[in-house]
Design a binder for these strands. Sequence first.
DNA 1: CTGTTAGCGCGTTCAG
DNA 2: CTGAACGCGCTAACAG
Lengths: 339, 339
Amino acid sequence: MITLKKLAKELKVSISTVSKALRDSPEISVETIEKVKYLANKYNYRPNKIALSLKSNRTLTIGVIIPDILNRFYSKVLNGIHDSADQFGYDVITINTKESMLKEVDSLQIFSSGTVDGVIIAMSEETLNKNDYSHLKEFIMKETPIVMFDRVTDKINCDKVIIDDFDAIYNEVKSLKDLGRKKIGFISTINELNVGKYRANGFRKASFDFFGKFDENLILRISKNRDKHIEIEKFLKKNKPDAIISADIVCGVISINIAKNLNIEVPKELSVVGFGDKTISEYSSPKLTTIYQHGTEIGNRSVELLVDRMNSKWFGLNKNLNSYTTDIIPTLTIGGESK
Amino acid sequence: MITLKKLAKELKVSISTVSKALRDSPEISVETIEKVKYLANKYNYRPNKIALSLKSNRTLTIGVIIPDILNRFYSKVLNGIHDSADQFGYDVITINTKESMLKEVDSLQIFSSGTVDGVIIAMSEETLNKNDYSHLKEFIMKETPIVMFDRVTDKINCDKVIIDDFDAIYNEVKSLKDLGRKKIGFISTINELNVGKYRANGFRKASFDFFGKFDENLILRISKNRDKHIEIEKFLKKNKPDAIISADIVCGVISINIAKNLNIEVPKELSVVGFGDKTISEYSSPKLTTIYQHGTEIGNRSVELLVDRMNSKWFGLNKNLNSYTTDIIPTLTIGGESK
DNA sequence: CTGTTAGCGCGTTCAG
DNA sequence: CTGAACGCGCTAACAG
């Protein structure tokens, strides 16, 4: 590693002279500046980021804690985070908790030892289930800004970015009713999560509001170890719905395929809509109509909120330090031919 | 941030006493140790990682440069990298080049300023096309260990991890022939990339070896802006193959769906096999048989190679410093019912 | 114009 | 048993 010290030694000047020269200080003579810059360029000198961090107490790095890096939705959020962070000049260091609370606690420990300037987090399933947020409270006391997204809780006071899950499905039911659908089914594989519950609640409420009744049989909950193909086939045969809303995209696509196997015409006899993203909707034919979750936008927005906080911390651009934002990103039904 | 200094001040002892006490130094009296530890614990003291890094010249962080974070294959590799890095006690900082060479050059700049102990990289499409690896050569001269995976080049001398693309498809053609297939088609959307070319070459060679001839019409190259559904439908109608190998998973799944629309029975009249991963293969019915690319394993292996290098650098565990490994991860055809 | 000094947080001498 | 001094690489305040 090439340092100021080495340059100074070779040029036979002091370290600070080199430092100043490289920053075009008016204190330094033009000739010295040229000499210094020439050598620095020759050796491709870069100031050591670690030393800079130590001095400035800023790392220009954002820490991201994600429950499942393989999940398509989180990938998209991560993508959005990367894009925005890049724009603001921040690096991104990611930790994949794999839904483990222990890992989440550890991650926050790591991040609170000066490695990052701020944290973006979606909590693990385990944390949500145990309903224990002490590690987050502790972390917040250490005054590193934090933004939560998707998997959030009211118990913690900080900026948040979420999807309006309840509304999304509520409106979807309405829209399907307007299309003339009378028996709408709901398929979910994420029953235990809050988002899953919000969606189920939205479905229930909409059923009452638009059809005056709610039939529990029209919700199909598939647990993790069951075969989705089989469960969905049984569900279609038994209930004969004329519309399906799937809380995740996989089941949406599978529903279309199963329907075709059963000679049910999509979308003529059966509308299918699923939460998810456009890319995957291509996998079925007709392509699945999707309720777009704006993963990328959620990532973007999280970074913006975080950068705001960090700036107000460093530069005292006085955002009200005791008031926090909760951004609700609306969903959007798009594309496909299955509705 | 709570530091040794603050603890020392509050305890009215010197900084070094605190430091020693926390590491159970025999130089310090039991009582002092207890007092120190109590307070450290109370304030949840963690040594500042940045300061540690500056001193030790090690960051315990790995830098990862990826061409497309949304690509399923790279997600999986990233997942493998995270798992292994975690095991070895390294953090992971990722940069998404989005196939841009400029971004790749910048990333290496960032990483060579002391931020990371080693780098894992898959090059951008642009870099490969321009065939210009000067930035990598420069980086390597700075003696930070680097491992390349998937998108590699012979021009650079370092450890590498790749898939045996040629063999994978070669063997697949053989296997399909053994199943009695006589007219095998190949669909590719990644023609311009090396991996795409290797696969096409493997297909060509296998056609000659097993069928004594090769018909260029049996390769369907779909460029980025074309509609895959339409292209594949035309291809199936025109060539009437009895087997399809898809160089990416999307076209594999789509092929199955199109075939069903055309009343071609899968796998009875048409075998379909695609490069990809199990999760996505679920999207079709029957499920797609996939040539598994071992993304996670590639990530794992890359980290192992990198850690090896870093250890040999730090601790002089003398690996031969001038000999580099190229790990070829075999593919594996698994699952599905479409073959 | 250039050099010296101090300090960011830490661990490790070395001196008391 | 404890503390002062040093150095990692850098910038900034202060001296010359």
